[in-house]
Design a binder for these strands. Structure first.
Lengths: 229, 229, 229, 229
DNA sequence: TATGAATGAGCTTTCATTCAT
DNA sequence: AATGAATGAAAGCTCATTCAT
């Protein structure tokens, strides 16, 4: 994104379900479609939806600006390129999830409680921002090499923090160490990233249900004791 | 794929195996169908590698045929479209995985053994065909609506079979039913599909290692007994 | 067409209505679709239908051979090119119409009777071979320059013969010469060539009706006497 | 045509008026929209000439834009497709001819005078726009099904108006009704549409000559009285 | 007499981006 | 802060024709 613009787009729920993940930050809720928020905000919101729906490469800049009700000139005034729009979405998602994880990991309580809370929270957040989740796991390779590296590094830091809780529990004997912490983390986040391929808001389970079940599965898998044959 | 061609491409795993771009310069012309298998076979192999490396939309037909050492006309002689190439890859993967799962599920042994074997096998197979795995979870939305439906149906059948083992164990009391079988299955296959985002053949773990760990995590999560808080 | 093949395709009616213009030449009437007559005959028949339906440029050789139930190799065995197919159609039409006109023009009877018969006959024949008529007026420019010249020359001979009857009548005082014979002929054949744009076999008028009306209009326009203001 | 552009191209007749292929080499840049009218206007003019010369399918978009001295992007900025260009030509011709006929038909004077004037006028107009006339009768089937229907409907309205004059004369006894008015109209417009296949501006007759002769033939054919045998 | 794989040139269309205003 | 005409490169696909068999 071009320097000098503070955009701070609020998170938007998956495909139309407005489930703000951070409702406190929602300023004006009286926005008819097409004129909500500032121009860059609108562009980012529209791009997120379209990228999730049709994929980055199949979404044209023309379509984005038409849907946002602005012109190409306006878009190129705020963003360097179409890639920039995608990079901005990644930045926003990473920042949000990192912030939440840091708060939980540094909180009080036993490590199993903190890990459980973090595991459930990332599920709930991923569901609340299903479009972001879809884009995240599907469009990484469409980012520039430079930006891909940035994203991967940031992601690694996130995984490290999560992993440090697993290791803490293993060292304390609260979790089994039959499976290396690295693998546990990749195992779990694979499940989380794939939520967008099967979760439907109108379906049987709420985001909280799924968060609870996923956390349960993780914690139970880490229970010490004789392995299941 | 156009009717009347039996292609039977064998699964190929890793990336980077070069295919001469200019087979005209190939002196050993004793191979009647080019430098590496028949033309459609070569096209499918090359397309798999390129789609996994760069994504479907970023791989041009020109690039595919140049790499396979044929012309566009030849490609369109065997395949209806670029989409058809992708569809063929999906068909091949689905058939292979379904066949393996059916064999394992109908085998002898306790349900926990069969589930564990199936869980490990799908990991090993996914790693042996990492390109296929990458394409599978990333390119579904680039298939035609019709073909997408077919793939999803076939995939559902696969999940059903896997789920039936989970349920069998839950009813027998071998597995806990704290988490619904549906969610267990989606949880596990999320992890499996995402193997391609982190697994590196040159890394610390063999495919069998990972298969063992993943199966272990699944079975342990299903162990009956008091839940971990 | 390649030398050495006698094809002698019988005329076929417009779009499915088998109204052979020259029924005496029809040898075998027991032909299931797809195997009627010799290969070149079938190709010509199929090409005629498709060229009339979709236009020359929009009909692919593949489509022609598929419909005729043969392969491309077979087609190129009998015809030099796709253009050759079209040229053959023109040759056939021209020959047929010229033969008929020569017979009528050299017959007995008053010039007005002969002109009327010729005028009606060309209408009936054009309707009986509506596909040919459609192709004739629409595809001339798709012929090679060489073949175009041939067709135009042949056409000129045909017009000359028709015109000679008009002039004969004008000189005999049976027809008015208010309008030059040249223009009368172009005027009339414009109407005839356009039959294929409006005439429908299932419609109100039979081919004979239209032939009668067209001949009537021509003869009445040529009646001597005070002009209509 | 894309919404929002008013093009209003004036009708152009003969062929061969060259348009510089390389307007970049045009020093007189005071004309803000290129060397000859606005870009869409130029494209339409060039397309009309080329479609008439070589046929719609044999004229490539590349050829059109090169001749007009613009790029493909520019063309697709103003027109949805190559078909759209053709559709625009049809719209223009239909509108022009309808307007003229309406003016004449609703004018004063006896029906025979009005019919004669209309008959001569359509000839003169068709000759003044020979390219349009060529395209009109030859390319209808290359239009989209939707647009074809529109054109046919508009054409039917035109024919209806012309036919209403014939019927008016027949009912008044000024014209014979030996031949149904429907057939008279199709007969006459066949002749008119085919003008482009034989009329040459450099030839023996002026457009007015031909218009007079054609109208004469029509009116004389409609004269009441004993038919010519 | 016929096959059908393969060619290679050409087609229409899309699109991110620029730039004069 | 914003417009929208124009660019230029590349995309997917079609097709008449050839040729070894």
């Amino acid at each position: 994104m071009k320097r000098g613009f503070a955009v701070a787009v609020r998170a938007r729920g998956g495909r139309g379900r407005g489930t703000p993940a951070n409702p406190a930050a929602d300023p004006a809720a009286t926005d008819p479609a097409g004129s909500e928020g500032s121009v860059p905000r609108r562009l980012l919101a529209v791009a997120t939806r379209l990228f999730a729906e049709k994929g980055f490469d199949r979404t044209s800049v023309q379509e984005i600006v038409d849907t946002a009700g602005v012109t190409k000139g306006a878009m190129y005034h705020y963003f360097d390129s179409k890639d920039d729009l995608l990079a901005e979405i990644y930045t926003r998602v990473l920042r949000m999830q990192m912030t939440r994880l840091e708060r939980i990991a540094s909180g009080p309580g036993a490590v199993s409680e903190r890990l459980g809370e973090a595991a459930a929270d990332v599920v709930v957040t991923s569901i609340a921002n299903l479009d972001d989740t879809t884009i995240f796991f599907r469009s990484l390779h469409q980012l520039s090499a430079r930006k891909q590296r940035e994203v991967r590094n940031e992601r690694r830091r996130y995984h490290e923090l999560f992993r440090s809780m697993v290791i803490e529990g293993q060292q304390a004997g609260v979790f089994t160490d039959r499976v290396p912490a690295d693998i546990v983390v990749d195992f779990y986040f694979g499940s989380v990233h794939h939520l967008s391929t099967w979760y439907r808001p109108e379906g049987e389970w709420s985001a909280t249900d799924v968060g609870g079940h996923y956390a349960r599965l993780l914690l139970d898998a880490l229970r010490p004791g004789a392995p299941q044959t």
